[in-house]
Design a protein around this nucleic acid. Structure first.
Length: 657
RNA sequence: GCUGCUGUAGCUCAGUGGUAGAGCGUUCCCUUGGUAAGGGAGAGGUCGGGAGUUCAAUUCUCCCCAGCAGCACCA
């Protein structure tokens, strides 16, 4: 019931205007200008998006959404998936059942249950039908129906997923969008475009499986992904951007730059080639210096440990299905009969984590409260039996080396240790070129150990640490580990996938399970708190991220090769050899290329391999004891004395710490 | 693990129901060339693995393995 016949609308510029109650958003736009009413696709009323056809009954602030706005683009994408993709699919496959069709970054998807599986070849047919529907340019209208009617509508149409959605919703009224005079309907919170004429450029991208409601216990639906933009130009720019990003893929660059390879016989484990391992070693040495100066003690613990230890730690029960377990028996490798001829009594497991081993070191001897915190670091090589479908290049592997450490401390030291960790992490990420971090604080899950008081303390400690470190972060309810809350540091790869790298996790459970204790000021035994922490996360993933973020062009201190010396003619060979020897002796990662090839050819090849510096030498340089420096990406050459060039190179290749 | 796709020379890829082709790389020969591909010749393949259909399978069918995209998982 309208309170009065007139409502006052405030516009973003502060102006106000009175309208008859029940005026629609479209009419408001029209009252401002004809062109605005043409461009309008929806409005926001007091910050809430509304359809143009919704009548306005209250005073409020209204702004008109057009396709120029990000919100407008999203509405367009939403309409495209809900009205066009869904209808096209139903036209071609009448028995298909629609689930959900939301927008995502750069586009949209729709989850659909098909009677018979469709393949990516069918996307073309669907896209064609979509274009046909767009050609008709139907108007979109909507009606609002009560819950019972909505359920009946979709039950009659044999849309069980829509019925489930309605049944599960709190609302009493539902919006049903219709298209022209067709009998297609879709359930949606809206808003939608007023007409299909306003759809821009789009393309169906790929097809994949996705579980209904994201639960792997449910059936798998077919998800159709698409991208949509205001016009062809924007679409093309987006597709080009994807192509460009694919060029930075670490798997591609890893091969091109001869950094590493993977093969079937060791799936999920990296074969580091000399060039890739050079990066690895530099990075490891850098982290080692950082950790040492931050008060960590580096240790090394066993790879294979007895089942009993993993049972005691809780890993056997909680993590067992991800562990590689081996019976402690001499195998029969004759090729005849079973490999294990006796029933094993004992099992060993490759460590999936370093923490239980670090607790064993902590437990040697007696620890006083005065000794805390104790920070044990290990470049620990861990194995995890990851699901096949999860493996991805060197980002998600089965054998990984963490820059792991465990800090054993008293409860009152949690905050200071966490703050110090965040500060250290920030310094390191800055040095390594990662400034934009996505930081998440994962809070207590439903199933958890420890008391509420401990959780409060732990969560607040981490919050405090992040705040003091000046890091903005988002909180994820219920996402913490069962033993404690955690901070996660995520980075995006070349094509926008987010990967967790650094982490800080509080643990009150493991010291208890493995009976670790220290002697307090009161002379009694106390439990230490454990902080599990990693900065890179794993070398594999982090180097993968660096390859993509640098597009293979590593800063000099990390570059696999600092410099290639190459000759123009064979007359400079001995001079080049001399230079090579001098530079090699100076500790530079240098290569010599005296092949009988043209200089253009050699420059091109080394540039493709992202070699940062090429020292070109010919007769003239040999005569004058100079080098012509060709820097990666540069066109100019820089001629200077060999001595100066080498000194500069040594200077430039120094690590940041 | 689930859904879909892919697997041919070292790499990137084309191709066919009658046991295969290109470019790059590699080897050899010619070329000594001044900053992103000089010329020529040769070598190189269990067409991912297994089974089936067929006179004949790299090609068609089924099973397995691996990779890719996404979903689920990710201490």
């Amino acid at each position: 019931m309208p309170v009065s016949d007139t409502i006052t609308i405030t516009f973003p510029d502060g102006n106000t205007r009175d309208y008859a109650s029940g005026t629609t958003g479209f009419e408001v736009a029209e009252s401002i200008s004809k062109s605005l009413s043409k461009a309008a696709i929806a409005i926001t009323l007091n910050g809430v998006q509304k359809d143009l056809c919704d009548p306005l009954n209250t005073n409020g602030t209204v702004s008109i959404i057009t396709l120029k706005d990000e919100a407008g683009l999203e509405i367009m994408r939403h309409t495209l998936t809900a009205q066009v993709l869904a209808r096209a699919v139903k036209n071609i496959y009448p028995s298909a059942k629609l689930a959900i069709g939301p927008t995502i970054e750069n586009g949209f998807y729709y989850d659909i249950a098909f009677e018979r599986a469709i393949s990516s070849d069918d996307l073309g047919t669907i896209e064609k039908e979509m274009r046909r529907l767009l050609g008709a340019g139907n108007a979109i209208t909507k009606k609002i129906v009560p819950k019972s009617k909505a359920i009946k509508l979709f039950t009659d149409r044999n849309e069980p997923y829509k019925v489930q959605i309605i049944e599960g919703a709190e609302d009493s009224q539902f919006q049903i969008y219709c298209q022209g005079d067709t009998d297609f309907i879709d359930l949606c919170y809206g808003p939608h475009l007023p007409s299909l004429k306003k759809i821009g450029a789009f393309k169906l991208m790929k097809l994949a499986g996705a579980y209904w409601r994201g639960d792997s216990n449910n059936e798998m639906l077919t998800r159709i992904y698409g991208t949509a933009w205001r016009d062809e130009k924007e679409l093309k720019a987006h597709l080009t951007q994807i192509e460009e990003a694919e060029k930075r893929d670490h798997r591609k660059l890893g091969k091109e730059m001869d950094l590493f390879h993977l093969q079937e016989e060791a799936q999920g484990s990296v074969f580091w080639h000399a060039k890739g391992y050079a990066i690895y070693l530099q990075l490891e040495a850098y982290i080692r210096r950082r950790l040492k100066d931050a008060g960590y003690d580096e240790v090394k613990t066993p790879q294979l440990m007895d089942q009993r230890l993993w049972e005691a730690s809780g890993h056997w029960e909680k993590f067992g299905e991800n562990m590689f377990v081996t019976p402690d028996i001499v195998p029969n490798t004759t090729g005849k009969g079973p490999v294990f001829t006796e029933e094993p009594k004992n099992f060993m497991a490759l460590k999936p984590m370093n923490c239980p081993a670090h607790v064993q070191i902590f437990k040697q001897g007696v620890t006083s409260y005065k000794d805390l915190p104790i920070r044990l670091a290990e470049f620990g090589c861990c194995h995890r039996n990851e699901p096949h479908g999860a493996l991805h290049g060197i980002m998600r592997v089965r054998q990984m080396t963490q820059d792991d450490a465990h800090i054993f401390c008293r409860e009152d030291q949690i905050t200071q240790e966490s703050v110090a960790f965040c500060a250290l992490l920030q310094k390191i990420y800055t040095d390594l070129g990662f400034e934009d971090l996505n930081v998440r604080l994962a809070l207590r899950p439903e199933k958890r150990g420890g008391t509420e008081e401990t959780w409060d303390k732990a969560e607040n400690g981490l919050r405090e640490a992040l705040t003091q470190a000046g890091l903005s972060f988002e909180e994820d309810e219920g996402e913490g580990a069962f033993y404690g809350p955690k901070i996660e540091f995520h980075i995006k790869d070349a094509i926008g996938r987010s990967w967790q790298c650094g982490t800080l996790q509080l643990d009150f459970i493991l010291p208890e399970r493995l009976d670790a204790s220290y002697i307090g000021e009161d002379g009694e035994k106390h439990r230490p708190v454990m902080l599990h922490r990693a900065i890179l996360g794993t070398f594999e993933r982090f180097i993968g991220m660096m390859i993509e973020s640098y597009a293979g062009k590593f800063p000099l201190w990390l570059a696999p090769t600092h410099c290639v010396i190459t000759t123009i003619t064979s007359s400079a060979d001995s001079y080049a050899q001399e230079l090579y020897q001098t530079m090699w002796n100076a500790g530079l990662r240098v290569e010599l290329d005296t092949r009988n090839e043209k200089i253009n050819y050699k420059i091109r090849e080394h540039s493709h391999k992202k070699v940062p510096n090429i020292f070109v030498v010919g007769a003239r340089e040999a005569e004058e004891k100079t080098v012509a420096i060709r820097r990666l990406g540069g066109k100019d050459k820089d001629i200077m004395s060999a001595e100066k060039a080498i000194t500069e190179l040594i200077e430039q290749s120094r690590p940041p710490y």
